[in-house]
Every structure is written in C-alpha cells, then in structure tokens.
Simulated scan of single mutants.
Amino acid sequence: MNHFDLVDFRLFVQIAEVKSLRKGAAEVCLSASAASTRLANLEARSGTKLLMRSSTGMSLTVAGQAFLYHARQILDQIETLNADLEEYAQSMRGHLRIAANPTAIKEYLPGSLRRFLAMRPEVRLDLGELFTGEIVRSVAAGVSDIGIVTGDVGSDRLESIPYREIDLVLVVPLGHRLADQESVTFKQALENDFVVFPDGSPTYSPVMRAAEELSMKMRVRARATTLDSMCGLIEAGIGVGVAPGPSAQRAAETMAIKIVPIADPGAKLAHQICARKFESLPSFARDFVAALQQDNERDQPR
C-alpha cells in the first residue's frame, strides 16, 4: 500500500502548476534538493513516472495528470475539513470568504448579504473587491470560498452557475447629439471618443467585441478607475462611456450627464457565481449560494 503525505500532494500540485521544481519547492517552503528527493520517493512509491523533465521545465505524464487530479481533490477536502473544525473551535458556525467584482458589490450583494446575515448572525464574513481575473485566482487558490465574476470564468479548475444580468448604457454629457435618443447602437457609440475603465474590465470588453465585429476602432481618449471619475470626465465633455445601468442612473441624479439605453443584445453584464466545487463547500457557504439564487429569482421581472 502506498503512503503519501500532504506535503507530497502540495509539492506536486505546485510543481505541476508552475512547471518548475525550484519554484514549486519555494511555494511549499522546501529547498530544491529536498523537493527533488521527495519527488523521487513519490515516483518510487507510485511505481511510475509522474513528471517529465526537460530544458523548458516540468511536464506531466498521463499518470501524473491522474495524480494531479486526485491530489487537488484531497487538498480541497482537507481545506474544507480544516475550515469546519476551525468554526467549531471558535464556537462559530462559519467563516464565509467572498471575492466579488465592483459591480456586484455596488449593485446587489449588500442586500443579499444583509438578509443572509440576519438569518445566520453567527457567520463571519470576509468580502474582497477584485476584478474577474483576480477573483478566479483567489477562488482557485482557496483564498476565497466563493467568487462572483462577469463573463466566462475561464478556468477548468472552477465550477460556475449563472447569476445576475445587468444592462449596459451609454453615458454622454448633456447637450451631446445622442443625449435625446431613445436608444443607441454600439455602432453609433463607437463614432465618438471614449472614456473607459481599464482593459479587460467588465464594461470595456463588450465595447471592444462590438468594435471588432463592426471592424471599427474604439477611440480611447481617457481612462478612469471609478464610475465617479468616469462620469466626471464625461460631464466635462472628454468623451462618452459605457457603464452598468443602475450605477449610471444614480450618477445622473447629481451630474450633468445623460443615460441612453444601448439596443444591442451584447450590451449586458452577465454575472456568474464560482467555486472550486460547490458540493465541497461548508454548509453555510452552500446556504449563501442558495440565498443568492433565490434573491435573483425574486428580483426577476414577472
């Protein structure tokens, strides 16, 4: 019977992910020589080659791919066990770690969290505001239990379920030629200079996709990091911008800007809930996911 320990599993997963024995060893606080010895012993006990070494790094054999899959499963289960035991040790029922993008946190998470925590006051909450790529990495690494992202998760290490959808709108300064339109298309919007959020942000990507499909170029005149700064630049006549509808409507109440609906089908932010494995989440975390889904169903137009 083969005997493995958790250090072996963690070391192997890290080496497989970074494709380097030295870097993988550093991730688990081992020297390269100690890691090499552990890896050799691991392959000896397994009776097969798990990793191939070459000038470009380390790669998995077929057996190594199977070992990696099971190692990740075991480590996930251990983390879930440790989390549950920690809760009991602290006389708490749960420690919920969530990573979500700014739109989710601004638009609808506060209400869902308020209702959930009112029913489960013993749950301790950590909420991190990140962008989608950072959220995926955080959940995949076990730093966060649950992530809320826009668009595709883009990782085969995570499971995901559809969540909310928000309409995107065009924000223009008062007096702009599009300000009195009932709606506009991306084509009409792209005829203007733009104020945008950073590349890869949820509102940036749909406009770029539309530009590519229309063989047009998005003329970026300024970049902003927050909705307030974006709307301030638009108010000053620097350009137009695309933003989530509810947030933009609130900004329009106090700023000299106009909100115009975008008629294109792609003018939406589709959110997803992601986790490494939903069934492996602690019960309180699964309850929160169910609460998010119920809130979403309740808020859908009848």
Score class of each variant (00 low, 15 high):
230 M>W: 03
190 L>F: 00
219 R>S: 14
167 D>Q: 12
139 V>W: 09
192 N>D: 09
231 C>M: 14
152 D>P: 01
156 D>N: 09
275 A>C: 11
267 A>S: 10
235 E>I: 04
131 F>E: 15
145 D>Y: 04
141 A>K: 13
136 V>Q: 11
171 V>S: 06
245 G>T: 01
167 D>F: 01
195 V>N: 06
156 D>T: 10
210 A>F: 03
147 G>E: 13
243 A>K: 09
146 I>D: 05
268 K>A: 04
273 I>C: 11
231 C>I: 03
144 S>I: 01
197 F>L: 15
191 E>F: 00
154 G>L: 01
257 I>H: 04
269 L>V: 04
255 M>W: 05
156 D>Q: 10
163 Y>I: 02
188 Q>H: 05
273 I>Y: 05
224 A>F: 04
131 F>Q: 15
205 S>L: 13
246 P>G: 02
209 R>S: 07
208 M>V: 12
165 E>H: 04
273 I>G: 10
139 V>S: 02
142 G>A: 05
200 G>W: 11
137 R>P: 00
224 A>H: 10
166 I>L: 11
156 D>F: 00
182 E>N: 05
259 I>L: 07
137 R>V: 03
269 L>R: 14
138 S>V: 02
252 A>F: 03
218 M>I: 04
197 F>W: 07
151 G>Q: 12
212 E>R: 14
239 G>Q: 12
263 A>W: 00
136 V>A: 04
230 M>K: 11
143 V>G: 01
183 S>V: 02
173 P>H: 06
208 M>D: 10
186 F>K: 15
176 H>F: 06
196 V>P: 01
247 S>H: 09
226 T>H: 08
180 D>F: 00
156 D>E: 14
268 K>V: 13
241 G>H: 06
187 K>R: 15
193 D>Y: 02
153 V>C: 12
215 S>P: 00
207 V>I: 05
217 K>M: 08
170 L>G: 08
253 E>M: 04
230 M>P: 01
201 S>F: 05
258 K>N: 07
223 R>C: 02
205 S>P: 00
267 A>Y: 04
176 H>T: 08
272 Q>V: 03
173 P>Q: 10
194 F>V: 11
194 F>N: 12
140 A>T: 13
148 I>G: 07
277 K>S: 13
203 T>L: 06
262 I>H: 08
158 L>G: 07
266 G>H: 05
199 D>H: 10
233 L>Q: 15
273 I>Q: 13
152 D>Q: 11
154 G>A: 03
190 L>S: 07
228 D>Y: 06
227 L>Y: 08
236 A>L: 13
153 V>M: 08
215 S>Y: 04
245 G>Y: 03
197 F>N: 08
173 P>W: 07
132 T>A: 11
254 T>W: 00
175 G>L: 11
266 G>W: 00
266 G>E: 12
221 R>W: 00
263 A>Y: 02
179 A>E: 13
